[in-house]
Design a protein around this nucleic acid. Structure first.
Length: 107
DNA sequence: GCAATGACGCTCT
DNA sequence: CAGAGCGCCATTG
């Protein structure tokens, strides 16, 4: 990875369970980078193919898939999510229903 | 080291 | 309801 910042982001995304999704802003906050959703997107964009990071479970604040460089991946992401029982309502999904709710690790 | 870019988010018009 | 603008920060030329 390119930096410790990315490592934090990846660590958070890896914790997302199957059938659940998280928003960029949410991941940013959990990674200790409140307000920097852009960095999350940037970090995911730098992810190598075949990484153990379920990047497809990360969507924007509307519950939709953000337009990336290669259009094919956007469609693939939607397909992957649907394969995990996540149903899309048009171009977006219901965050109220699928948003990931992480548990506090610290205790 | 400066300028431009980028898988976002929120507010205003 | 749709579009445009501004902020935030790391990576790259």
């Amino acid at each position: 990875m390119t930096s410790a910042t990315y490592a934090r982001i990846y660590a958070v995304v890896r914790r997302i369970r199957r059938g659940r999704v998280a928003t960029y802003g949410q991941v940013a906050q959990l990674a200790g980078l409140p307000g920097q959703a852009r960095l999350v997107g940037y970090a995911l964009a730098a992810l190598p193919d075949g990484s153990d990071v379920p990047w497809h479970r990360v969507v924007n604040a509307r519950g939709g898939i953000s337009p990336r460089a290669d259009t094919g991946w956007g469609d693939a992401q939607r397909a992957l999510l649907q394969g995990e029982r996540v149903v899309f309502a048009g171009d977006t999904l219901s965050l109220a229903r699928y948003q990931w709710r992480p548990r506090r690790r610290a205790r």
